[in-house]
């Protein structure tokens, strides 16, 4: 029986359609190259998945990335242009997005206008909404995974932790989302969670865009609980029914919830409507958090100023574009 790969011609295309120019980055299971689609001269990123590296075969994160990106064609989700195989490596051809939101947040020379923040959050929510209506949770939203195209469009990327929304009764792992953006139900080790975990992360990113510094930067998992509740109040049975039955809910320091005035002071540049939306997205009880639909229809997006047109958004000063920004921490893989 033959089991060689080379004689199979079923891959979408072959490596000869693309050139790999230079290495631009490396993740845990992939090396990313700058490439070109030869037929169109289009710049692409080629993510070469290392195979034969794992004793259990193809890596789960790589499989998830392929699985979900194949289904997700949307202006605010990174485009998977093609997949091809070459000498036992799996290659994802992605649109080339050299910038991400984290770089912009850290770039001190750039000033964010309220309309810029509105535009980024709007695009993030549109991408998230598209995931959710397809019953897909992203599970790793953070500024570093929100990539920005040369025309200013923001795109959700890195679907290595994504998964389909559970079937009724199915257990999920709570060990997802990079710590600073992890919703309280995950911090408490909930085995059942919903789209609300992504909404929380968007709320925290929203806050970070206004503060220009991470909103809830816990030093470790225990500290994350403390930082989160110091900022937003410790959940109780009153404001979150049944919270005390979650696995890791115990011996918490009790902080009072922040008053509206406190939040106003914290986000001094936010309008009342902007504040409303942040509050709705960062409700401690996931059942109280707004859904992507409600968020998109929120008055914040209707009031002036209108969201900046993507092409008018601030970009990285050109010389720094290629500089690699180290992520603040490694996310936990499942």
């Amino acid at each position: 029986m033959t089991s060689t790969i080379t004689n199979v011609q079923v891959a979408n295309s072959t490596c000869s359609n693309y050139s790999k120019d230079r290495k631009v980055g490396e993740g845990t299971y992939a090396v990313v190259y700058l490439g070109k689609q030869l037929s169109t001269d289009r710049r692409t990123a080629i993510k070469e998945i290392k195979t034969g590296l794992f004793k259990d075969g193809l890596d789960m994160s790589a499989l998830r990335e392929v699985k979900y990106l194949q289904e997700m064609k949307h202006e605010n989700v990174i485009e998977l242009i093609d997949v091809f195989s070459a000498s036992n490596s799996l290659n994802l051809v992605l649109e080339y997005l050299p910038c991400d939101l984290e770089m912009l947040i850290k770039e001190q020379s750039i000033i964010f206008k309220p309309s810029d923040i509105k535009s980024w959050i709007l695009m993030t929510l549109r991408g998230v909404h598209h995931c959710h209506r397809n019953f897909i949770l992203h599970r790793d939203l953070k500024p570093n995974n929100l990539l920005i195209s040369p025309s200013g469009q923001l795109k959700l990327a890195d679907f290595g932790l994504a998964r389909s929304l559970g079937n009724p009764g199915e257990d999920l792992t709570s060990n997802v989302v990079t710590r600073w953006y992890r919703a309280p139900e995950l911090l408490f080790g909930a085995r059942h969670y919903t789209e609300a975990i992504d909404i929380w992360a968007v709320g925290i990113i929203f806050a970070e865009l206004m503060l220009r510094t991470p909103y809830l930067p816990g030093k470790d998992d225990v500290d994350q609980l403390d930082v989160t509740f110091r900022a937003l109040g410790t959940p109780t049975e009153q404001n979150w029914p049944n919270v005390s039955s979650l696995p890791l809910y115990n011996s918490l320091r009790v902080y009072p919830p922040p008053s509206r005035q406190e939040l106003r002071n914290r986000f001094s540049a936010a309008t009342e409507k902007a504040l409303d939306l942040i509050i709705q997205m960062t409700q401690l009880d996931p059942n109280m958090r707004c859904a992507s639909t409600e968020a998109l229809l929120h008055d914040y997006f209707l009031e002036m100023p209108r969201a900046t047109d993507p092409s008018e958004l601030p970009q990285m000063p050109s010389k720094k574009k290629s500089e690699k920004n180290e992520p603040p921490q490694k996310k936990v893989k499942v």
């Binding site: 079923v10 979408n12 499989l63 392929v66 979900y68 194949q70 289904e71 195989s85 079937n167």
Partner: peptide, 26 residues
Amino acid sequence: VLDLEFLVLSSLKFTLFVHHPFRPLY
């Protein structure tokens, strides 16, 4: 098993998402 993994994946044209009738049934 592992030697065929890549062949199966490419035969699937790298599409792994399957919609089953169980969710609509629910």
